[in-house]
Design a protein around this nucleic acid. Sequence first.
DNA 1: AGTATTTGACCTAT
DNA 2: ATAGGTCAAATACT
Length: 356
Amino acid sequence: MESVGTWQYNTLINELTQGMEKTNQLRSYLWSTSPSEAQDFMLQKILSSYDKALLILKWGGSNGAATLSTPETSVSVHGSLRSEDLNKSVNDNQDNMNASKKRKMQHTWTERVRVDSENGLEGPTDDGFSWRKYGQKYILGAKYPRSYYRCTYRHVQNCWATKQVQRSDDDLTMFDITYKGSHTCNLSSTNTVPPPASPEKQELKLNYGHNLQGQHSEALPYFKNSLSYSTEDLVNEEMPAHFSFQPTFAFHDEENHYFPTSALLDENHHQGGTISQHLISPATSESNYFSASTHVRIPNVQHSEADTADIISAQTSTTNSPIGGMEFLIDPTNLDPNFAFNMPEFFTYSNFEHGQ
DNA sequence: AGTATTTGACCTAT
DNA sequence: ATAGGTCAAATACT
């Protein structure tokens, strides 16, 4: 399985995956506005289609690359309602109404991502956002530490999106990435400003160590992302130079249980009204919007979180397909009249990070 | 020089 | 009290 067939196959998978991811991003973004059910439903349908297409491909298609995973995807719906906000809900679950969802229950979903060292798919998994790590911690039963990231532009743009990356205990190529909150920063930046490499990749390369919180008080050498492995506990030095991710989404329920999507697959078509919660991301109330006019590429905006090389690779990873990048420039003005875009200083990105 | 990451301390919710 | 999450000073990188 080398040759053309496989190549096409991979390309197809790649394209579909990208489409799915972008759709997910869009959906995620929508969450920060006030999506109508119809809108969300449509997106779910689209995602469902991608999902099925991928499934078909991977199951029936060339046996090559993607056999390991049974990757299905399905979309996450929802975060959770914040009790404070909307009326209580339409939940089917026995809502533990109590203080459980106090704080910031935001749109939360988990994306299971795997590193497939087999095929040569370029990692479609750059979520296109710029993340900054702010913590790492060993979690109770987990072998590997969980890493915490927040949007790089939290302060500049008041973007409160965060994500956690947790490597799977058993399958070293699997990562669970839990996103919380929708980006209020990126939309245009995703398309105009090259995003830095995704942290998952960093996780992959580093983080075999256990230099953490009291665990090993003796700090291991500082791992710099994407640079040298620091011997020691690198479990996996044969990780290929470039690997790829295959995302799998999962539904979340109130807590962090997500349902393997396989369980949901069949329901993807007839989920008429099952999904009905919506919430308005708190971030929305803040004052950040996107510039509608920033589709123009800004060549020399310098993101500090990624160097040029990273930028390029990140960028190509989304657009490198022969078919031509599916990366669509979302034109906010066409999305929804309700969107408010406006943020002149978007152009002047640079790092404003110190002040905290 | 300015930033990003590391990592122990601190905080918050169970 | 404890686990998970976050902060922030120290450190590393560019």
